[in-house]
Design a protein around this nucleic acid. Structure first.
Lengths: 241, 241
DNA sequence: ATCAATAAAATTGTCTGACAACTTGTCGGG
DNA sequence: CCCGACAAGTTGTCAGACAATTTTATTGAT
């Protein structure tokens, strides 16, 4: 199920072992782990290795240690937060993540329309202009597109939105360039022009402070690209739900 | 800015220091960290502490180590995935996270209305019923409420939604019980009754497959609780934007 | 016999020193 | 100029010791 490269360093081996014990349920939340000495004898490694593995798992939020008492399996709810599986990026997974992105961005546009400052609006406009010049130069403008969405997220005044987008973008956007279903340059150009037109409507809504329209425009914009991926997924291998 | 409890264990102090250096940009991605020996002398701790801190940061995906060469700041895009800050949970941070949650849940309700199976609808109805019985017993039903929202997230057919909610819920919901602005039991009862009424409208919309109404009902439901928190935050110490 | 204070044992946290495994740069010889 | 051997530097692992803290056992008084 998981990746099993031999992991030439012992610490990772011990980490994998303990992690598997915890996630596999052999060690229930709140249960106490074997003592460091017990682990050294059982696994045949030095205490240094055991301690480093424990420190790593503690950083992961899987366990907590109490001096003089022992190490305990942490409540999984208290753990940090991992969103998507980075390794297994199947096409379906990407679609799922894109839906999550749509959800966040639609509301981000609404919040931006509600409370964007003049500087924020100016930044969004500048990002739009950057796409425009890139398109006139005949480029794809994927980086500029991402910057545009990022500018909107920052205009919400809520730092969670840009952070969320930055993470999702780094994992979803790169795939976008892998395979575009549009073939001829002419088709591609009209497609990009339409995208940019959708962008302009989003800008207008945010600039006007029209919350409802901002939501609508952003949803339409993202739904369209989502549908293109859905079609692609269905074409490649149809199935699922 | 951040929380500065003395952190009685040195490892966390060193971790915090290095983590701040990396996130603060003083150490660019790809840059090499000081050697362990340099850190021991500079920070005045033993090599054991430094190594455990490095092991923890490596588990966090912030750095990578190469034997014989050194430790390097990892490319953040390659790093696993972290969304929000778990430690620094100020009231403003909670509000920001709640807005993110609203964004996701509104669209989750829409997706649920669009493609929930009969079993999913039944599960949502059952969760609603659980709240009902808990309320009749005079309980707060926070766990049941969370289960209700979770059932909706699962009805989307997109595994990212329940996962996202599970994380956010574990960090946001617990605070809900910390301090409720409603004082008298009567007020509390009417409040809970209204919440449950809002729930019923969400259930009806999803059951009918009415996407727009599902969005509207969920947004109204969450906006209301968000507004209550906003008022609470403003009452405690007004400021910010 | 019950309970409280004390002592002992157990456990994690930190320090020190050492050696192995690996990487990188240097230097000499071809 | 290229290339191999060598040396220095760095991380990985091991071993032992002591400190700080918690848990358990012992002991004593009531």
């Amino acid at each position: 199920m998981t990746d099993k490269q031999p992991a030439n360093n012992l610490t990772e081996q011990v980490m994998a072992r303990l992690s598997a014990d915890i996630r596999g349920g052999r060690l229930a939340p709140g249960a106490r782990l074997p003592t460091e000495q017990a682990l050294t004898t059982e696994l045949g490694v030095s205490r240094t290795v055991v301690r480093e593995a424990v420190a790593a798992l503690r950083a992961d939020g899987l366990i907590v240690t109490r001096r003089g008492s022992g190490a305990y399996v942490a409540d999984p709810a208290a753990g940090p937060f991992r969103i998507a599986a980075p390794r297994t990026t199947s096409l379906d997974d990407i679609l799922d993540v894109m839906e999550l992105r749509l959800s966040v961005e639609v509301e981000a546009a609404a919040f931006a329309a509600e409370r964007a400052s003049r500087r924020h609006v100016a930044a969004i406009r500048a990002a739009w202009q950057s796409i425009e010049t890139a398109l006139k130069r005949g480029e794809g403008a994927v980086a500029e597109d991402f910057a545009f969405h990022r500018a909107i997220a920052e205009a919400t005044g809520n730092s969670q939105f840009p952070r969320f987008l930055a993470y999702l973008g780094s994992h979803v956007i790169p795939r976008q360039s892998v395979r575009l279903s549009v073939d001829t340059p002419a088709e591609r150009r009209t497609y990009l022009a339409r995208i940019q037109h959708e962008h302009s409507r989003i800008v207008a809504a945010i600039s006007d402070g029209d919350v409802t329209e901002a939501r609508r425009a952003m949803r339409e914009h993202l739904t369209r690209s989502l549908d293109r991926y859905r079609a692609l997924a269905r074409g490649k291998k149809n199935g699922r739900r």
